[in-house]
Structure formats: structure tokens, C-alpha cells
Amino acid sequence: MSKRDYYDVLGVSRQADAAEIKSAYRKLAIKFHPDKNPGDKEAEENFKEAAEAYEILSNQEKKARYDQFGHAGNSGGFGGGGGMNMDDIFSQFGDIFGGGHPFESFFGGGSRSSGRRVQKGSNLRIKVKLTLEEIAKGTEKKVKVNKQIVCTTCDGSGAKDKSSFHTCNTCGGSGSVRRVTNTILGQMQTTSTCPTCNGEGVEITAKCTTCKGDGLERGEETITINIPAGVSEGMQLSMTGKGNAAPRGGIPGDLIILVEEVPHESLKRDGINVIYDLYINFADAALGTSVEVPTIDGKAKIKIDAGTQGGKILRLKGKGIPEVNSYHKGDQLIYVNIWTPKAVSSEEREILEKLKGSANFKPQPGKSEKSFFERIKEYFE
């Protein structure tokens, strides 16, 4: 099932600013929250869908990619939301609801422990080199990434062993502390992260000797990247959760993939079109011939009509690059160039001298052939 447009999910226009996006998500998060809709699977899916849309549209880079490339730029293996779980979603509430779980403050408590601070790992950036053929057809790349991974000794807990944990005395394991303040409007209750355990709910008495309590170590991961067809030089793709791991069970960062095009030996890219410069000699241009030209899919045989002029543009329809997230493909444009020899033999010179006087060999611009710029204009019209 295809994903809905993120702007439709939140019910905002494509011109909505950050404040409008945040406000729209806040309303949906309250409406479809699992604590308010216990056992309602549809509400839970709506809750996750809204969180996914907000995760993309609240991030300037991801929003820009989504606006330009749709779901191909941020989902289907790239971007956010698809791999989000409830812990990922609830970690957003610190920004949306000013810290903590919304239903603790609105309804006097909830079924979830909300004070625990969930940290996020840092993003990683890599470059992936792609040939023109790989860009045209899409490809799968396996890359080895050196990054921070969950400590294999303590499984990310940061503790030497299970006995090294004890419940925080300050917050009683909730990860948050509540304060009641008397104001002119009456008593107001606020919730903040526990300063003793930093929101963890537990304290560690003996740290892991491998990671020194961070829960992380350096490691290598082989990641499979599915590159959609039609990407371009400088385009950034994102894979959620494939960046550096976060301390003690936090949310992993993202892997940002920067596309780098490898120049083709004979073809040039111009947007979704492919350009090839064909050089033929004077005799072939005058008499006509058939030649093979390279394309993204291999060789193609084309006909050169007799009397072809230099600057003529031939077109192979549908032999270009597809647009990202679209079925539309560009063309291959073949620019015909007449090759003039720099040196000729005495016999060739004699033949050319005889031809010079022929009426057929006198230039007749404007009689039948259009100018180069007129042909360009005609092609694009």
C-alpha cells in the first residue's frame, strides 16, 4: 500500500511553516494517542503515521528532499518513519510537549514512564559513486561503514553486570521528578528530567570495562543501500537508524548518502537527457550512411541521411534518464559534427580542388537547412 502524502497526513498546506507543522502534529498526537485509544489498532496506525510525517517535515533537510523527490527521497529504505517504534515516537514529545509524556500532564498520569531521556546517536555521511548506467536503472550498493555500535560486552547497558544497577533514589526509577509550585492561579505541577540519573531511572555502580559506561564501541557494519533510478550529482538520500548508535539504548542516528556521478567515457548527462557527440566525415555526410552509437543500454544503429549538415540533432526517444519517482524518461540527443581533416595527401587535394568548383559544393545557407539555434528551439518546442 502506497504511503499518503505527509502534508495530507498532518492536514497542512505545502507552504506551512514549522510552527503550523508542530501544532498540527500535537493535535493528532493527542487525538490518536494509545493511552487515549486503548486497543484501537486504527488509532495506533494513525498515531504512527502522524509521527512519521512530523519526523520528515520538521527536519529542514528531510523536508527539502521530500518536497523535491517525494517518498523516494526519504522513504522506501531512505528517510524516517518506516523504522520508527513507539520509543522513537515518544522521544519526540520533549520538543512537542515541553518535556515528558502529554497524558501525564493532561490526565494526571499515564501507563508509560515518560521522564526517561532518550538520546539520539549522531548522523553519518558517506559518498556513493554511481555510473551513468547505475543511475539510469537504479542499483543496490553494499557499503562497509565504520561507526559507533552497541557495546558487545554489556549489550549497551554501560554496566559491568546486572548487579551493577540500582534504582535511582531521587526519582524512584521514573527518570523524572515532579515539582508543585504555588502561584496566584493555584498550584501548578511541572515535570523535569531527574538530575541524579539524567533521566535513566537507574544508577550504575560499576561500569563496563570495554565501553567505560557509554554503552558504545567502534565497529563496522555492512549496509545495503537501494538507490532509486534517476538520482543526480549532489543529491542526498537518508537511511533512518543506520548512523551512530546512541548511548544506553537510545535512538540511532541516520546515514546520509551523498550521490557522486562517475563521468561516462562518451555520454554526457543533461538533466534527464543524455548527450552524444557524433563525428562523421564529409563523404558520409554527403552520401549518407549507418553508424553505431553508444547508449546507456548498449549500442544502437542509426541512419545518417544523405546531405546531413553539421549541427543536426538526432533523437533516440526514451534512451535517457528516468525522473525520480516517475515513469517519465528523457531522450538521447545525438549532435552531428562533420569532421574536417587537418592534413590531406596530394591525391586527396587534387580531388578536392576539382570538387570546389562544383555548384553542389557551394554553401547555400538558408535555402533548405535551418540554423543550429532554430533546430534547438524546434526540438524543445
Rank of each mutant, 00 (worst) to 15 (best):
S2V: 12
D5F: 04
Y6G: 07
Y7I: 09
D8A: 13
V9L: 04
V12F: 02
V12W: 06
S13N: 05
R14Y: 06
A19R: 12
S23Q: 12
S23T: 11
A24K: 08
A24E: 00
A24F: 00
I30M: 10
K31G: 01
K31S: 07
P34V: 04
K36N: 13
K36Y: 09
D40W: 07
E42W: 09
E42C: 06
N46R: 14
F47T: 03
F47D: 01
K48D: 11
K48R: 15
K48N: 11
E49T: 15
A50S: 12
Y54E: 04
S58N: 07
N59C: 13
E61Y: 12
Y66F: 08
H71L: 11
G76P: 09
G76N: 04
F78N: 14
F78T: 10
F78D: 08
G80N: 14
G81T: 03
G81Y: 02
M84Q: 09
F93T: 06
I96T: 07
G98K: 06
H101N: 10
S105N: 06
F107T: 10
G109H: 05
S111F: 14
S113T: 15
R116P: 09
R117D: 14
G121I: 06
N123W: 08
R125A: 09
K137S: 14
K137H: 11
K141E: 09
V143P: 00
V145I: 15
K147F: 09
V150W: 05
D155K: 11
G156P: 03
F165G: 02
H166P: 08
S174V: 10
G175P: 02
G175I: 04
G175S: 03
S176P: 04
R178H: 11
T181V: 11
I184H: 13
L185K: 14
M188Y: 09
T191D: 10
C194Y: 10
C194D: 04
P195R: 10
C197N: 00
E203M: 11
I204M: 05
I204D: 00
T205D: 15
T210N: 15
T210E: 12
K212P: 03
K212D: 12
L216H: 01
G219I: 03
E221D: 13
I225R: 00
I227N: 00
G230M: 02
V231L: 08
Q236M: 13
Q236V: 15
L237D: 01
L237E: 02
S238A: 06
S238D: 09
S238C: 13
G243Q: 04
R248W: 04
G249N: 01
G250Q: 03
I251W: 08
P252E: 01
V259R: 00
V262D: 10
H264A: 04
E265F: 12
D270N: 15
I275F: 12
L278M: 02
I280R: 01
L287F: 11
V291L: 01
T295K: 06
I296M: 08
K303Y: 07
T308V: 10
G310W: 05
I313G: 06
L314V: 02
G318L: 04
G320Y: 07
P322H: 04
Y327R: 14
D331Q: 00
L333N: 03
Y335P: 05
N337E: 07
P341W: 00
A343F: 11
V344Q: 11
V344M: 11
S346D: 15
I351G: 15
L352P: 10
E353L: 12
E353T: 14
L355E: 13
K356M: 12
K356T: 11
F361H: 15
S368N: 13
S371G: 12
S371L: 08
E378W: 07
